[in-house]
Design a protein around this nucleic acid. Structure first.
Length: 288
DNA sequence: ACCCTCACCTGCACGC
DNA sequence: TGCGTGCAGGTGAGGG
């Protein structure tokens, strides 16, 4: 479910709660979550590791670890971790931050025991989520991560870049916006929302977007992501864990609003399948 | 290199 | 109540 803003929300929640703590043990209940590593290997590597940071690359959560018992000299920027646990929530992945005596709910596939008598639980109803351990320095060589497009709030995601990406593609804009190797961070909701903001038709072939409108799309992508980051107010209650998005639907302007009037012009919002996913748009504001 | 379809899972809302 | 269908905020493999 989560797109980049929701992932960022979880990253910040993890930073507030588990950064600076140590994992004293772990349990993997769904082996494919960490495949091809075995649960034994995974648990051994994670045990007694210090959480030195929590960050993000696209929709991957990056939990940075230092092995506790190892001696080290002064830390340098490139060596502030020994390995990284990269977590992708996919559709239904979620972290819960529980007390020791809280019940562990159904679909909990990994449990991390923290040195403050809490448990960090990874729960994922549909089992699409994945975790992988990445050695220091290997992040930019890891399949699935090295192919990702530039961060949408970074300098490398600029008009020139977007222009080049659009020109090279005959796919529809909506499908292109979902391709994390081209434009990073959008998912099915924010892709529709960004195109609505830019008043651009989702079916339009990417290469056919006029040069005049590329900046509109560029701004819309950044704005929709930034707005979401600024407005997600999930709880970190014990029951919900690091929940997100529950109150956010009220900001959707087209997504899941088929048949409702467009907030700009009053025309009915339409829905169709594009690239196998539901797409929502206003047929008046977003003409081809 | 690109682009499409399918596969991976569970649960929920819907119509009959 | 049950059952069948379609759908869900994501991506990776495999094929053309």
């Amino acid at each position: 479910m989560p797109e980049l803003p929701e992932v960022e929300h979880v990253v910040r929640a993890l930073r507030r709660t588990i950064k600076g703590r140590t994992i004293v043990g772990s349990e993997v209940r769904l082996p494919k979550l960490i495949a091809p590593l075995s649960a034994a290997t995974f648990n051994r590597r994670v045990k007694d590791s210090f959480i030195s940071g929590v960050s993000r690359r696209g929709k991957f959560i990056l939990i940075e670890f230092q092995k506790r018992e190892r001696k080290r000299g002064p830390l340098t920027k490139s060596h502030n971790h020994d390995f990284i646990l990269a977590v992708h929530l996919r559709m239904t992945g979620k972290f819960l931050y529980l007390h020791l005596d809280d019940d562990i709910p159904k679909h909990s596939h990994a449990v991390f025991y923290i040195d403050n008598d809490r448990r960090l639980v990874f729960r994922d109803q549909r089992q699409f989520g994945v975790m992988k351990l990445i050695d220091n320095g290997q992040l930019t060589h890891t399949k699935g991560i090295k192919e990702l497009a530039p961060e949408p709030f970074g300098e490398d995601f600029n008009l020139e870049y977007l222009k080049a990406v659009l020109q090279g593609s005959r796919r529809s804009l909506k499908v292109l916006l979902l391709d994390q190797t081209k434009v990073l961070g959008l998912g099915n909701i924010y892709a529709s929302e960004a195109l609505f903001r830019a008043r651009i038709n989702p079916f339009k072939p990417a290469a056919e977007l006029s040069a005049r409108r590329v900046p509109l799309l560029y701004e819309a992508v950044r704005d929709v992501l930034q707005f979401a980051v600024d407005h997600i107010r999930g709880s970190i209650s014990l029951e919900d864990g690091f929940s997100y998005g529950a109150a956010f639907e009220s900001f959707w302007q087209v997504y899941d609003r088929e048949g409702e009037p467009c907030v700009r012009c009053g025309a009915r919002i339409r829905r169709a399948t594009l690239g196998g996913r539901s797409t929502y748009w206003c047929s008046r504001c977003q003409r081809r």
